[in-house]
Write a protein that binds this DNA or RNA. Structure first.
Length: 878
RNA sequence: GCGCGGUUAGCUCAGCGGUAGAGCGCUUGCUUCACACGCAAGAAGUCACAGGUUCGAACCCUGUACCGCGCACCA
């Protein structure tokens, strides 16, 4: 046991233990183990990802669950890995290519480009995995998976083929969300509605049959009018009813387009007339279908206008074209007015630009196993925490639309479909290409990334692993991906394994900044967790975050909270250091062999309560409460009270008493370190080793494999004695508080030793005198049942007896009288409140006996206090 | 528009039917033999508002206001 430094320095300790755990294979899961299984799969971060505070919270929670499960004797699998993240990764590599080589992916060609992406992935990908290790995550790294591992890729394709054969996958030309930057279709979930300040243009189209008469139309998108193939009004709209069936002139390219009637039109909006552009709006497309309208697509995939828009617009960006079209209308005298207007526009989640509804040929999936998936959550086979997310899930499932699963990207799982070169309507759908491959061309598109991650809980496992560890126990994730990932995993689980993929889903809250804003790179309000780890230690950030992370509630991040975690670690460090200073610790303590002080019995009983409460909080995943419980017990009960009280024994000449107190400290610290381990693994492991503790565990020497402590209920000890001891300790502590109060009231400097007189029965008060005196910085506590205080000596009525603190003329008496007066008024007010309550018949009749009893006691206490104060007032006044 | 959260001490948050709690910050005093990343004492809240249920409400019910989120959306 070497001397340890005053302040905890986490960096070297954390590195050391992480390396040892790894070297010893502590995180490796054994499918052949006879122990009961416990498993979690990590929500695979993007390969391009770097650690955010969200990840820290999320993965700390998983680590807590995994580490506790190990201590409870489970064989634990925490399966890590990363997601290939189609668009994100492709974008990163494309950007790099453009910047460094001035090339586009098309310059390289598909194969060469993909080689580059893999190269990038090997070199820069998965930084986040290294960062998770810094956090202390106990993942089984030997099983790290990637959603484009060869096995995994095959599984993704097999699933596609399977669903195709079940008629759940089909190809169709439909309106999809098109991202003009990423140049791919997106699913509905990848579109975010944002309010936009735009302009509502009022324009007019001339009636073909009635030259000189016009229909007034309001639009936010004049640049698409070249694709208009009708105008629509509500069939019952009296203003326009007579015009239905007629035509108007589309100004450019000039053409006659019909006036149709459609229920979809809201007569109250704008002018009640809608220009119908079936190629560029979902609703318009549907109107077009109903009225068999022509579809004129005037946009290129990249959001510029094409030649169908006319030579003066072709090539213009959609937003430039908007102004140009409005300008042209103005020149033609067709623009009536422009007004500022706010509407909601769908944005591409990734590229952060407005998406374009676009008609294109895509692959779609009818979601499988919907019923089973809905029932699972509704009936509790899968439990969402907090439960309210179940409603969100149910609502989405109820209104679910087919999933557009094809993406016009290169990085991803290529769709296993081949078209015959001589007749593309003949298709081959299989994992394997057709035998005469040269006569076929493979589908260019890849699959949506989520079409691979929805298999994550089981396709990451081989058969033996799955037999042992699937279904997994807990999933920890953010509610923002409930549709993207959670719901789809449940469906995939039932569809492909016939089972739920996990039993519990714990949704964390979002971490926000102090202004309540989402953390984001562009705002620059997201602190780098690695900086925080360097500054406060991984255990500090873990504990700090866990303590403030309530159940599924958003969290405002404040570095102060992390500081608190670090301080807690430091306090632990010093508590261990204090223990270590007083000689070698006892690895295993048998309480029944010791003569225990009242203080020891009291703290041991509190430890039992702590274990019970911590277990109860774990059962409900109330992590913040666990943190709170540990903090309070350790800091306040153990350090502030027990250790301070036990110093009497520790510094005494009585070797037996000293050993008893030190043994109890070992007993407590031993269990406390185990309880702390999931939250602060490195520090607890270090102190476990420093103090030389061992515990009956699960075969390995590390704390991380020590058994989870159980409450003993102080078995084997005399119950009555415990009760009496605890009562006495409570009395002493209360007396200490009152004495300290007295000192502070009279502004006695903390360091000043003071003489106290205790008018009390010496028989037992004497036994606690040393400890009592120590706790109140007494020069001496004189116990004298016959003590006669001089008039006006400040006193406190304590459970130990009347305590006096002679001031020896150091205090200003006038100020003292003044203070007493105020105090008396306060006590009188309290008395009134209590008496009022007690005089209420209904209260006495209806409230539980214990509550009434407490009020009675309070009444007695307050009146005693009042009498006492009044006496003091008299004494001082005279 | 529909739904879900939130509103408690200066700040961040616990509490969810029986005298309002923690950490930070603030005030006062402490180089007390583990710890100033500390110790001790303290000030500080009509628990958003209005009704209701109850002997009793921050907590349950009904509304209102404001903040946030999700879903759906009208050009």
């Amino acid at each position: 046991m070497s001397e340890i430094s005053k302040a905890y320095e986490p960096q070297s300790v954390e590195e050391k233990w992480y390396a040892r755990w790894l070297a010893d294979g502590c995180f490796v899961a054994d499918p052949a183990s006879p122990k009961p299984a416990y498993s979690i799969v990590i929500p695979p971060p993007n390969v391009t990802g770097v650690l955010t505070l969200g990840h820290v919270l999320n993965n700390t929670l998983q680590d807590v669950l995994a580490r506790r499960a190990r201590m409870l004797g489970h064989e634990v699998l925490w399966l890590p890995g990363t997601d290939h993240a189609g668009i994100a990764t492709q974008t990163v590599v494309e950007r790099k290519l453009r910047k460094e080589e001035g090339q586009t992916r098309r310059d390289l060609g598909r194969e060469k480009f993909l080689e580059r992406v893999w190269e990038w992935k090997e070199k820069h990908g998965g930084i986040i995995i290294q960062q998770l290790k810094k956090l202390g995550c106990s993942c089984d790294w030997s099983r790290e998976r990637f959603t484009m591992d060869p096995h995994y890729s095959r599984a993704v394709q097999a699933v596609f083929v399977d669903l195709y054969r079940k008629d759940l996958i089909y190809r169709g030309r439909r309106m999809v969300n098109w991202c003009p930057v990423s140049l791919t279709a997106l699913s509905d979930e990848e579109v975010i509605m944002k309010p936009q300040n735009g302009t509502l243009y009022h324009m007019r189209y001339e009636l073909v049959d009635r030259p000189g008469e016009y229909l007034e139309i309001a639009t936010t998108r004049p640049e698409t009018l070249m694709g208009d193939t009708a105008v629509a009004v509500h069939p019952e709209d009296e203003r326009y009813k007579h015009l239905i069936g007629g035509h108007v002139w589309r100004p450019f390219p000039k053409a006659q387009i019909p006036i149709v009637a459609d229920e979809h039109i809201d007569p109250k909006f704008g002018t009640g007339v809608l220009k119908v552009t079936p190629a560029h709006d979902k609703a318009d497309f549907e109107i077009g279908q109903r009225h068999k309208l022509e579809i004129i697509d005037v946009l290129n995939p990249d959001g510029t206008l094409n030649e169908l828009a006319g030579p003066e617009f072709a090539g213009l960006d959609r937003f430039v074209a908007r102004k140009a079209a409005a300008e042209k209308l103005r020149e033609m005298g067709l623009l009536i007015k422009e007004e500022p207007y706010q509407n909601n526009v769908g944005y591409s989640e990734r590229a952060d630009v407005p998406i374009e509804p676009r008609l294109s040929l895509q692959w779609f999936l009818k979601y499988p196993s919907l019923q089973a998936s809905r029932d699972a959550v509704k009936e509790g086979a899968i439990k969402f925490r907090p439960e309210r997310w179940g409603n969100v899930y149910e609502h989405w499932m109820e209104n679910i639309q087919d999933w557009c699963i094809s993406r016009q990207l290169w990085w991803g799982h290529r769709i296993p479909v081949w078209y015959r070169k001589d007749d593309p309507s003949v298709i081959h759908v299989d994992i394997e290409p057709p035998a005469d491959e040269e006569n076929w061309t493979q589908e260019e598109d890849v699959l949506d990334t989520w079409f691979s991650s929805w298999l994550w809980p089981f396709e990451t496992m081989d058969e033996a692993t799955r037999a042992k560890f699937y279904p997994t126990n807990d999933l920890v994730t953010g509610p923002d991906i409930i549709f993207f990932w959670v719901a789809r995993m449940i469906m995939a689980g039932y569809e492909f394994t016939g089972q739920k993929p996990f039993g519990n889903v714990f949704f964390t809250g979002l971490i926000r900044d102090m202004q309540g804003r989402k953390m984001s790179k562009s705002l620059g309000n997201s602190p780098d967790p690695l900086d925080l780890i360097a500054k406060y230690g991984a255990d500090g950030i873990r504990f700090g975050l866990l303590r403030i992370a309530p159940q599924g509630q958003d969290i405002r991040f404040d570095e102060k909270q992390i500081e608190e975690g670090r301080n807690f670690a430091n306090k632990f460090w010093n508590a261990a250091r204090f223990r270590q200073m007083h000689g070698p610790s006892f690895a295993e303590v048998d309480l029944s062999g010791l003569v225990l002080s009242s203080y020891s019995l009291d703290i041991l009983a509190k430890l039992d309560d702590l274990i019970v409460n911590v277990n109860a909080a774990y059962a409900e995943y109330r992590f913040n409460e666990i943190g709170q419980l540990l903090y309070e017990f350790f800091w306040s009960e153990y350090c502030d009270w027990y250790v301070e009280a036990a110093k009497t024994e520790i510094f005494s000449e009585d070797a037996t008493a000293k050993e008893s107190a030190l043994s109890v400290m070992d007993y407590i610290l031993n269990r406390l370190l185990r309880l702390l381990h999931p939250f602060m693994p490195h520090l607890s492991e270090e102190l476990w080793a420093t103090l030389g503790y061992r515990a009956p565990g699960h075969g390995k020497d590390f704390l991380m494999y020590a058994a989870w402590p159980e409450p003993t209920h102080l078995a084997g000890l005399d119950r009555e004695r415990i009760v009496a001891a605890r009562e006495r300790v409570a009395g002493v502590y209360q007396a200490v508080r009152l004495a300290r109060n007295l000192r502070a009231e009279y502004r006695i400097p903390s360091g000043k030793k003071v003489r106290f007189y205790l008018k009390s029965n010496p028989e037992w008060a004497d036994a606690e005198r040393d400890t009592f005196g120590r706790l109140i910085q007494a020069e001496e506590v004189t116990i004298d049942p016959l003590y006669r205080p001089a008039p006006g000596v400040p006193r406190a009525l304590t459970p130990l007896g009347e305590l006096y603190m002679p001031l020896e003329g150091l205090v200003d008496m006038a100020a003292e009288l003044d203070r007493l007066k105020k105090e008396i008024a306060k006590v009188q007010a309290e008395l009134v409140t209590v008496r009022k309550k007690l005089s209420s018949e209904s209260f006495v009749a209806n409230a539980p006996a214990a509550v009434v009893e407490e009020h009675r006691k309070r009444e007695v206490d307050w009146s005693e206090k009042l009498g006492q104060l009044q006496k003091m007032q008299q004494a001082l006044g005279s």
